[in-house]
């Protein structure tokens, strides 16, 4: 089991959908943090409230549901391999949103082309 703290290991200001939206985008989180670990077959604990002020849906959709949309992993498998952790109760809202977006994503519905390409 690997553990990622979004605020410490990725960015204290995660925001935006694509790399072109600035540093800390959902695309960068998905491609640089989540995907390499998922490719190893390991489970991931993701701490979402460690130094992070909050999230917009663009980041959450692209970062998490994008894994399904681009065909890296199915909805069910992704949900079984990630665990969302937080200590601030307000962040339960984002956990619920992440699960909702993953469930709504259509598997392999789009080919991934990096926004910076």
């Amino acid at each position: 089991m690997k553990r990622i703290s979004v605020g410490k290991d990725f960015s204290p200001d995660p925001a935006g959908r694509y790399r072109t939206d600035g540093e800390g985008s959902g695309e960068a989180f998905r491609e640089d943090c989540l995907r390499p670990i998922l490719d190893t077959g390991e489970k991931i604990e993701i701490v979402i409230d460690d130094g992070v002020e909050g999230y917009g849906s663009s980041f959450l959709v692209e970062g998490f549901a994008g894994l399904v949309k681009y065909g890296y992993i199915t909805n069910e498998e992704l949900l079984s391999r990630i665990e969302i952790l937080y200590t601030d109760d307000d962040f339960e809202f984002y956990k619920i949103k992440i699960i909702e977006y993953i469930k709504q994503a259509k598997y392999s519905s789009q080919k991934y082309i990096g926004s910076s390409e």
Binding site: R17, D21, E53, G54, D88
Partner: peptide, 19 residues
């Protein structure tokens, strides 16, 4: 209280400006 939701809204407003 609940500032994190305002923060999320603001980052989304900035993303909307970009897009």
């Amino acid at each position: 209280c609940k500032w994190n939701f305002l923060h999320g809204g603001l980052t989304e407003a900035i993303t909307n400006v970009s897009h």
